[in-house]
């Protein structure tokens, strides 16, 4: 868990111990531990309702935990929220700045709320505008910006007071792929500058960008590690990829095969998850024969390594079963 911190030789700046939150009878976050080191990008993954947002809200001090401890940059968040807040930046899931104000005015207001002296405020606003490519839009009303730029403005506002910790709650949801890519490049730059970043997402491709991941399910962290660690886990369910013009037609009869656990259709190919213990090579050979017999064209059917999504699906199934 603390490998990353040990590797970088630095003490974690986010430490949540035994964090717990209930709403009435419903346990939203069930005794989790989270540590993030300076310069680390930590991803919190999970379906809606898994407890990601509740966790991030507790870490930011928006929601008092029902139990457990939170320490941010050495400050007890539960006991000294004011001091802790000065050390963190938070980008909310939805745009929460003022749409009627211009980009620059929003930043000026944020600088004031964090108590930056006027000279410092000017300097930081200049930096943020230039660094996040917002200079050209400084006079525009925030409401009129495209979504991707609005997220940049959110990020700029969260960075003015030079926080050591940045919380991003689904920062790229609804943003187009190119803008998402650019946003992640910014996140890397910030991490390189030594900021600890905790990000929630439900995009799997984004998960692979993180240094470390935690998968949440029903309020608990069911797996944690670097993307490579997680991918290296032996998967009980082998995978088979089928390509070819006829593969859409194949899926109809494949559904009847007992060895096939799940058929995941993609554009131009199928991904088959097989029952544990199945030999994928033997099944691939049978599949090709059957296709030939039925006169359907299949170019390739071969075993493939799992991706993160496969790993997570398996983990979630295992967790639900236990």
């Amino acid at each position: 868990m603390a490998e990353a911190a040990r590797e970088s030789g630095q003490a974690p700046v986010i430490t949540a111990t035994d964090l717990f939150r209930r709403f009435g009878d419903f346990v939203a976050v069930d005794h989790i531990h989270v540590t993030v080191a300076p310069g680390e990008v930590f991803g919190l993954l999970g379906a809606n309702g898994a407890g990601k947002t509740t966790t991030i809200r507790m870490l930011c001090g928006l929601l008092p935990p029902s139990g457990g401890a939170i320490e941010l940059a050495g400050v007890d968040m539960v006991r000294h929220p004011r001091r802790a807040r000065a050390r963190l930046g938070y980008v909310t899931q939805h745009f929460a700045l003022y749409g009627e104000l211009s980009v620059r005015e929003n930043l000026e207001m944020q600088a004031g709320l964090y108590g930056l002296p006027p000279g410092r405020a000017r300097e930081r606003i200049g930096w943020a505008l230039a660094h996040l490519s917002l200079s050209r839009l400084a006079g525009e009303k925030a409401r009129s910006l495209p979504l991707g730029y609005r997220r940049r403005l959110d990020l700029a506002a969260a960075l003015l007071h030079e926080p050591r910790i940045l919380f991003l709650d689904e920062p790229t949801s609804g943003v187009d792929p190119l803008a998402r890519q650019q946003f992640w490049e910014l996140i890397y730059e910030l991490a390189e500058a030594g900021i600890a970043i905790l990000v929630t997402t439900h995009y799997m491709d984004e998960a692979t960008y993180c240094d470390r991941l935690a998968l949440m399910h029903a309020g608990r962290i069911i797996a944690e590690g670097s993307p490579d660690d997680l991918l290296a886990r032996p998967l009980p369910t082998p995978l088979l990829e089928v390509r070819g013009e006829g593969c859409a037609a194949c899926s109809r009869w494949l559904a009847g095969w007992p060895e096939v656990l799940e058929i995941i259709p993609h554009a131009g190919y199928l991904r088959l998850r097989l029952q544990p213990g199945t030999d994928p090579a033997a099944l691939a050979a049978r599949l090709r024969e059957e296709a030939v017999r039925r006169g359907q064209r299949v170019d390739a059917a071969e075993p493939v390594p799992p991706d993160l999504e496969d790993v997570f699906v398996t983990l979630l199934e295992e967790d639900s079963a236990s």
């Binding site: 001090g61 928006l62 929460a96 700045l97």
Partner: peptide
């Protein structure tokens, strides 16, 4: 209504 309060809650504003 507009959710600005969520943002203000994370700032040191009392």
């Amino acid at each position: 209504e507009l959710g600005n309060l969520v943002m203000l809650r994370t700032t040191p504003l009392t």
